[in-house]
Design a protein around this nucleic acid. Structure first.
Length: 388
DNA sequence: TCTGGGGTCCTAGGACCC
DNA sequence: TCTGGGGTCCTAGGACCC
């Protein structure tokens, strides 16, 4: 059996915990009133009553709930709290798989002797989280992770929902399609178009029909899902990974120097993360979003991993210049690293110039690690000439 | 009122290799 | 007188998740 445990309105709840005067009030984490181009990250249940929800533009939230308490959010604090809670989860299962900052799967096979049947364990887990942190968690219990995940959403907040073994298919067939995990906005649109409202409606379709509607892979996934089977993709471990950083500008950028300086900033935050984790990357990606919200990507792989800020910036800048249509307002700029590899780089691959650069950057990395408030950065004018 | 940021996985076409 | 088939890697883009 598996448990999916999901913290209720996590960021907003932490704020209410840390600021007792916010308790019982509509708290909206995502930005301050007046922050341009922000969206709601988390709304407390009090705020949800006004129709405010995650991913809603902040200006819209402000109209629906002008009396709300608006906050930018403190990721460090949420991460710290998350670690504590994951630790508590670890007291109940040897296998905790964290899905995101506020949710995790627990494999609770063989824990019966210690904690009793799954439902009893779930109650103990909820009580432990509440006692030790003051937060509430919603829990789903099922014989596979996929259904446990859906179950945890069935009775939020502070919920507990069990799908008994053998009841998986009946549960999925009775489920409104809006609750199918993995079927987002575009898929819901297809459901609507074909009048598909419940799992039962999907259950009646052949694998061929589902594949024709949703593509082979996702069609097969749906075929299995409505039969109560877990999907491997939700059971398996993570892939090799990637990392990215992007920034939406409060106002569209047009000036080339301003844009390319912003790109340097973004590359900088990325490279410190990469080097800090002792990793290297073979693929660099640049993301451009124009004023009209249309986006383009440019990607390039190389047998030689990225080794320094100067190196990353040169690659990113070349990609940017290849793709960017001059004069179009720039809304967002991003950079990403893919094909991440473990480990130290072979020094001998690089010439003296590179070595000097890398040592400088290693020093900056060290200083920033020891003295975060120093926030040391490269000055663009001090970077070696970029290849035009 | 527009539409964040950091991720994962999938697809489709092309290059290249055996 | 024809234009195989399978595998891998790459690029660009999209859907989805929290």
């Amino acid at each position: 059996m598996y448990i999916h445990a999901d913290l209720d309105a996590f960021y907003a709840s932490v704020e209410q915990l840390d600021h007792p005067e916010y308790a019982g009030k509509p708290v909206i984490v995502g930005g301050l009133p007046g922050d341009r181009r922000s969206v709601v990250s988390t709304a407390s249940y009090e705020a949800r009553k006004f129709g405010v929800h995650s991913a809603m533009p902040l200006v819209q939230a402000l109209k629906r709930c002008p009396q709300g308490i608006y906050l930018r959010g403190r990721m460090e604090r949420y991460r710290e709290m998350s670690e504590r809670i994951m630790g508590i989860f670890g007291d109940f299962s040897p296998e905790v798989r964290q899905l995101s900052v506020d949710e995790a799967f627990l494999d609770i096979s063989g824990t019966e002797k210690l904690f009793g049947p799954p439902e009893a364990l779930a109650k103990k887990l909820k009580a432990a989280v509440r006692e030790k942190t003051g937060l509430t968690v919603s829990v789903g219990i099922a014989s596979n992770r996929y259904i446990a995940k859906i179950a945890s959403g069935m009775s939020k907040p502070d919920g507990l929902f069990l799908i008994p073994p053998g009841g998986e298919e009946a549960f999925m067939r009775s489920l409104p399609v809006g609750k199918i995990w993995g079927a987002g906005e575009k898929t819901q649109e297809i459901f609507r178009k074909h009048g598909l409202k419940t799992g039962e409606d999907l259950y009646r379709l052949s694998p061929g029909t589902l594949s024709a509607m949703f593509g082979k892979s996702f069609g097969n996934f749906l075929y299995r899902a409505v039969r109560g089977e877990g999907a491997e993709s939700f059971d398996s471990e993570r892939g090799e990974g990637s990392m990215s950083a992007e920034r939406t500008f409060p106002y569209d950028l047009y000036d080339r120097f301003a844009i390319e300086s912003a790109l340097l900033d973004i590359c900088e935050s990325l490279i410190w993360r990469l080097l800090g984790e002792g990793r290297q990357a073979r693929t660099v990606q640049v993301k451009i979003r124009y004023k009209d919200f249309s986006s383009v990507l440019a990607r390039e792989s190389s047998p030689n991993p990225v080794v320094s800020l100067n190196d990353l910036y040169a690659r990113a800048l070349a990609l940017f210049r290849k793709k960017y249509q001059d004069g179009r307002g720039l809304r967002l700029l991003g950079a990403g690293l893919m094909n991440l590899e473990e480990g130290p780089r072979q020094k001998e691959l690089f010439g003296a110039q590179d070595e000097k650069e890398r040592n400088l950057e290693k020093a900056i990395l060290e200083i920033n690690r020891k003295f975060p408030s120093a926030a040391l950065r490269r000055s663009r004018s001090k970077l070696p000439e970029q290849d035009p």
